[in-house]
C-alpha cells in the first residue's frame, strides 16, 4: 500500500492562463505553508515570479479562504487566484 503524500495546487483565471497551469501536484513536507509554497513557485522565474507578492494573490485551502501562514497537509487542495470579480 502506498501512502498519498501529495498536495494538489490549483490556479484560476489570469494566473491559470499566465502560468499555463491549471493544476500541479507537489509532495507534502513538514512545516510547508501556503505562503512558503508561493515563494517556492515564484523562484521558478519567468511568469511564476509574479507569485512573489508583486500582484495580489488570494489563497484557499480545501476551498476555504486562508492566510499565507496556513500550514499545508498531505491530501490538501490549495488554490491560488487573483482577487475575485464575479457578480
Amino acid at each position: 500500500m502506498t501512502t498519498d503524500n501529495t498536495i494538489v495546487v490549483k490556479f484560476f483565471a489570469r494566473l491559470r492562463e499566465e502560468l499555463d497551469t491549471a493544476t500541479l501536484e507537489i509532495e507534502a513536507e513538514p512545516g510547508l505553508t501556503a505562503g512558503r509554497l508561493l515563494q517556492d513557485l515564484a523562484a521558478k522565474g519567468g511568469n511564476w515570479a509574479q507569485l512573489d507578492g508583486a500582484q495580489p494573490v488570494m489563497i484557499a485551502v480545501n476551498q476555504v479562504m486562508t492566510k499565507p501562514e496556513k500550514e499545508l497537509q498531505a491530501g490538501d487542495e490549495v488554490a491560488f487566484f487573483p482577487p475575485v470579480t464575479g457578480g
Binding site: 484560476f12 483565471a13 489570469r14 492562463e17 484557499a60 479562504m65 488554490a79 487566484f81 487573483p82 482577487p83 475575485v84 470579480t85 464575479g86 457578480g87
Partner: peptide
C-alpha cells in the same frame, strides 16, 4: 458575493480580452 465568491470575469472586445 462580488468580493468573496470565486468568480472571475474576462471582458471581450472586438480584438482583445482582459481579465477584470
Amino acid at each position: 458575493l462580488k468580493t468573496s465568491a470565486p468568480f472571475w470575469k474576462k471582458e471581450i472586445t472586438g480584438d482583445s480580452e482582459h481579465w477584470v
